[in-house]
Design a protein around this nucleic acid. Structure first.
Lengths: 196, 196
DNA sequence: AGGAGCATGTAACTAGTTACATGATTGT
DNA sequence: ACAATCATGTAACTAGTTACATGCTCCT
């Protein structure tokens, strides 16, 4: 179960309360692994029972107390074990692909509008990644060793969004006959177009 | 819940028993939506109770009877509703990305070997998609209307695998100093490439 | 004799989602 | 006065996984 490992990784970078973890899962880590606060609290409870993390209560001024979780030695061990375990091939699970297969049941205009919306989402996410990259890693040839993982993940996100845009452009070309969106970011042509 | 819709799509293409559906989910549809036979039987049961599908028992020679499921009119309605519903943005969930973040807890050789294995898996899947494309759609400029969805999904799979290979190459370059794998299939530079 | 394929499921469990619940502080 | 942020959870449910169970036929 990978949420456990995502939490271990996050806590290894910096100890945090459940709430703080939940916010990380809305942002940085959340770009490749989502989790709700409810789920995080649940898993943290189990992880503490299993001895992977330990908590201490921290009182705060003008704010509720918080329970700050930190890795235990067992947690660090588990993280090491995980880090060197072989990665099982990931199965992609795309509701969008299911919908493409349902094309004959939709009308073209609705589908085209939906794909354009989806493309726009990819473009926005891509800009967000590009801004992050420019801000945090202005010189990609000199990424520090302890930032390498985060940098590579960011690169993966970037590549995925670019791929998503290319896919949308191909779909739009196929659905509209090839003269649809100008597609400024990615040329999107692989040679096949269905022109009338 | 998208398994339901994947089943509707599959049954719309051709009526089938649970067993046959399970095999489709091991192959074609399974490339973008996995499901075990247990899960399929369970969901089929519910869908029949909900009136989306109906079954009839078919006796066979030298083989167990089978229950062949077909869409009902309500099922077709639901499929139409689904086909025109807006696609929620998909969250990618990558255990591999979590592992990249855990890089400081692994040793480099193990990671490099793991990434190479992963790259190889992408290459194999890509060849498989390319073979499928060559076999079923020898002329991409003339894909029939009723095949368009399947073709576009195949294109998406292809793009995803190519992206995965590019990502692996970047990771290997970062981990080994840039002179690692020859990377015949994808040049792997910083993402934007355009070959003739 | 043994394994693969055909065919259907149940039971127990884990993971994740949605809805609900509480209560203080800070900003508009 | 109302919403947002901080902070922690419980309860009910849905989706998916893993293990188990049965029995027939065809091939080697």
């Amino acid at each position: 179960m990978a949420l456990e490992h995502a939490i271990l990784v996050s806590l290894a970078e910096r100890s945090a309360s459940g709430y703080e973890l939940a916010r990380r899962f809305d942002a940085s880590i959340g770009n490749f692994w989502r989790a709700s606060h409810q789920q995080i609290y649940k898993v943290l409870g189990r992880m503490e029972a299993d001895g992977l993390v330990e908590s201490r209560l921290v009182a705060q001024d003008h704010r509720p107390d918080k329970k700050v979780y930190a890795l235990t030695e067992a947690g660090r061990d588990e993280l090491r074990r995980f880090a060197v375990s072989p990665t099982p091939p990931e199965v992609l699970r795309s509701e969008f692909a299911v919908k493409l297969r349902a094309l004959p049941f939709a009308d073209r205009e609705t589908t085209v509008a939906d794909v354009r919306r989806r493309r726009q989402q990819h473009v926005e996410k891509l800009s967000y990644y590009e801004e992050s990259a420019a801000r945090f890693y202005p010189d990609p040839s000199a990424v520090a060793d302890d930032e390498l993982g985060a940098w590579l993940v960011l690169r993966g996100g970037l590549l995925a969004e670019q791929g998503g845009i290319t896919w949308c452009d191909e779909i739009l070309a196929a659905l509209t006959g090839g003269n649809a969106t100008p597609a400024p970011r990615s040329p999107a042509r692989t040679g096949r177009r269905r022109s009338p």
